[in-house]
Protein backbone atom coordinates (compact mmCIF):
# COMPACT_ATOMS: atom_id res chain seq x y z
CA UNK A 1 0.00 0.00 0.00
CA UNK A 2 1.47 3.22 -1.08
CA UNK A 3 1.51 6.25 1.14
CA UNK A 4 -0.45 8.07 -1.50
CA UNK A 5 -3.27 5.60 -1.30
CA UNK A 6 -3.37 5.77 2.49
CA UNK A 7 -3.33 9.52 2.46
CA UNK A 8 -6.10 9.86 -0.08
CA UNK A 9 -8.22 7.24 1.64
CA UNK A 10 -7.90 8.90 5.00
CA UNK A 11 -8.69 12.33 3.69
CA UNK A 12 -11.57 11.20 1.56
CA UNK A 13 -13.13 9.14 4.33
CA UNK A 14 -12.59 12.02 6.69
CA UNK A 15 -14.35 14.39 4.33
CA UNK A 16 -17.17 11.96 3.72
CA UNK A 17 -17.77 11.72 7.42
CA UNK A 18 -17.15 15.29 8.40
CA UNK A 19 -19.37 16.95 5.82
CA UNK A 20 -22.66 15.45 7.01
CA UNK A 21 -21.64 15.88 10.64
CA UNK A 22 -21.01 19.54 10.12
CA UNK A 23 -24.32 19.86 8.42
CA UNK A 24 -26.01 18.19 11.35
CA UNK A 25 -24.57 20.82 13.61
CA UNK A 26 -27.40 23.09 12.58
CA UNK A 27 -29.55 21.00 14.85
CA UNK A 28 -27.62 22.47 17.73
CA UNK A 29 -27.88 26.03 16.60
CA UNK A 30 -31.32 25.92 15.10
CA UNK A 31 -34.44 27.29 16.76
CA UNK A 32 -36.32 25.31 19.29
CA UNK A 33 -39.99 25.32 20.08
CA UNK A 34 -41.69 22.37 21.67
CA UNK A 35 -45.21 21.23 21.06
CA UNK A 36 -47.44 18.24 21.58
CA UNK A 37 -48.04 17.57 17.93
CA UNK A 38 -44.36 17.68 17.15
CA UNK A 39 -43.74 14.84 19.52
CA UNK A 40 -46.27 12.55 17.90
CA UNK A 41 -45.71 10.24 15.04
CA UNK A 42 -46.72 11.88 11.80
CA UNK A 43 -49.93 10.36 10.53
CA UNK A 44 -51.11 12.77 7.88
CA UNK A 45 -53.19 14.55 10.42
CA UNK A 46 -55.08 11.54 11.70
CA UNK A 47 -55.48 12.09 15.39
CA UNK A 48 -54.80 8.73 16.86
CA UNK A 49 -52.25 6.49 15.33
CA UNK A 50 -53.79 3.60 13.46
CA UNK A 51 -51.77 0.53 14.31
CA UNK A 52 -48.30 0.39 15.66
CA UNK A 53 -45.12 0.95 13.79
CA UNK A 54 -43.62 -2.25 15.09
CA UNK A 55 -46.47 -4.41 13.92
CA UNK A 56 -45.75 -7.41 11.77
CA UNK A 57 -45.54 -6.78 8.10
CA UNK A 58 -45.82 -8.99 5.09
CA UNK A 59 -43.59 -11.99 5.04
CA UNK A 60 -42.95 -11.23 1.41
CA UNK A 61 -40.32 -8.77 2.47
CA UNK A 62 -38.43 -11.46 4.30
CA UNK A 63 -38.73 -13.77 1.36
CA UNK A 64 -37.40 -11.08 -0.85
CA UNK A 65 -34.50 -10.51 1.49
CA UNK A 66 -33.68 -14.20 1.43
CA UNK A 67 -33.92 -14.39 -2.33
CA UNK A 68 -31.71 -11.38 -2.68
CA UNK A 69 -29.16 -12.88 -0.37
CA UNK A 70 -28.97 -16.00 -2.45
CA UNK A 71 -29.05 -14.47 -5.87
CA UNK A 72 -26.63 -11.78 -4.96
CA UNK A 73 -24.16 -14.30 -3.72
CA UNK A 74 -24.55 -16.19 -6.94
CA UNK A 75 -23.81 -13.00 -8.77
CA UNK A 76 -20.71 -12.60 -6.63
CA UNK A 77 -19.56 -15.96 -7.90
CA UNK A 78 -19.74 -14.66 -11.39
CA UNK A 79 -17.44 -11.69 -10.97
CA UNK A 80 -14.19 -13.61 -10.79
CA UNK A 81 -15.42 -15.85 -13.50
CA UNK A 82 -16.34 -12.95 -15.73
CA UNK A 83 -13.02 -11.25 -15.25
CA UNK A 84 -11.06 -14.34 -16.17
CA UNK A 85 -13.36 -15.73 -18.81
CA UNK A 86 -10.85 -15.25 -21.60
CA UNK A 87 -8.35 -17.42 -19.81
CA UNK A 88 -10.90 -20.04 -18.83
CA UNK A 89 -12.12 -20.44 -22.37
CA UNK A 90 -14.66 -22.99 -23.41
CA UNK A 91 -14.54 -24.96 -20.19
CA UNK A 92 -15.29 -21.94 -18.09
CA UNK A 93 -18.10 -21.01 -20.38
CA UNK A 94 -19.74 -24.40 -20.10
CA UNK A 95 -19.38 -24.39 -16.34
CA UNK A 96 -21.13 -21.09 -16.15
CA UNK A 97 -23.84 -22.27 -18.49
CA UNK A 98 -24.56 -25.05 -16.04
CA UNK A 99 -24.47 -22.59 -13.21
CA UNK A 100 -26.80 -20.17 -14.92
CA UNK A 101 -29.16 -22.94 -15.85
CA UNK A 102 -29.33 -23.98 -12.22
CA UNK A 103 -29.91 -20.39 -11.23
CA UNK A 104 -32.66 -20.10 -13.80
CA UNK A 105 -34.22 -23.29 -12.51
CA UNK A 106 -34.31 -21.80 -9.07
CA UNK A 107 -35.80 -18.63 -10.45
CA UNK A 108 -38.47 -20.52 -12.34
CA UNK A 109 -39.30 -22.45 -9.22
CA UNK A 110 -39.63 -19.27 -7.21
CA UNK A 111 -41.79 -17.62 -9.81
CA UNK A 112 -43.99 -20.65 -10.24
CA UNK A 113 -44.42 -20.90 -6.51
CA UNK A 114 -45.71 -17.36 -6.53
CA UNK A 115 -43.16 -16.08 -4.10
CA UNK A 116 -43.00 -12.80 -5.98
CA UNK A 117 -46.69 -12.33 -6.48
CA UNK A 118 -47.35 -9.09 -4.66
CA UNK A 119 -50.94 -8.48 -3.93
Amino acid sequence: MSAELVLSSVIFFGLAVIIPVIMLLTAVFGPRSGGVAKNDAYESGIKHVVGMADQKFSVKFYLLAILFLIFDIEAVFMYPWAVSLRELGMFGFLEMVVFILLLLTGLIYILKKGVLNWR
Binding site: A41, Y42, E43, V49, V50, G51, M52, A53, D54, Q55, F57, F61, L64, A65, F68, F71, D72, A75, V76, M78, Y79, W81, A82
Partner: peptide
Protein backbone atom coordinates in the same frame (compact mmCIF):
# COMPACT_ATOMS: atom_id res chain seq x y z
CA UNK B 1 -41.00 4.42 14.56
CA UNK B 2 -43.72 5.43 12.22
CA UNK B 3 -45.83 3.12 10.10
CA UNK B 4 -45.17 5.08 6.96
CA UNK B 5 -41.55 5.25 7.79
CA UNK B 6 -41.21 1.54 8.36
CA UNK B 7 -43.14 0.73 5.25
CA UNK B 8 -41.15 3.15 3.21
CA UNK B 9 -37.91 1.80 4.55
CA UNK B 10 -38.97 -1.73 3.81
CA UNK B 11 -40.08 -0.85 0.34
CA UNK B 12 -36.89 0.99 -0.32
CA UNK B 13 -34.83 -1.89 0.94
CA UNK B 14 -36.81 -4.46 -0.98
CA UNK B 15 -36.55 -2.42 -4.10
CA UNK B 16 -32.88 -1.73 -3.80
CA UNK B 17 -31.97 -5.30 -3.14
CA UNK B 18 -34.25 -6.53 -5.89
CA UNK B 19 -32.59 -4.38 -8.47
CA UNK B 20 -29.12 -4.95 -7.21
CA UNK B 21 -29.27 -8.41 -8.73
CA UNK B 22 -30.04 -7.45 -12.32
CA UNK B 23 -27.54 -4.66 -11.90
CA UNK B 24 -24.88 -7.04 -10.71
CA UNK B 25 -25.66 -9.49 -13.47
CA UNK B 26 -25.56 -6.80 -16.09
CA UNK B 27 -22.16 -5.92 -14.75
CA UNK B 28 -21.06 -9.53 -15.07
Amino acid sequence: HNKYGVLGGLRAAAQVISYEIPMGLALV
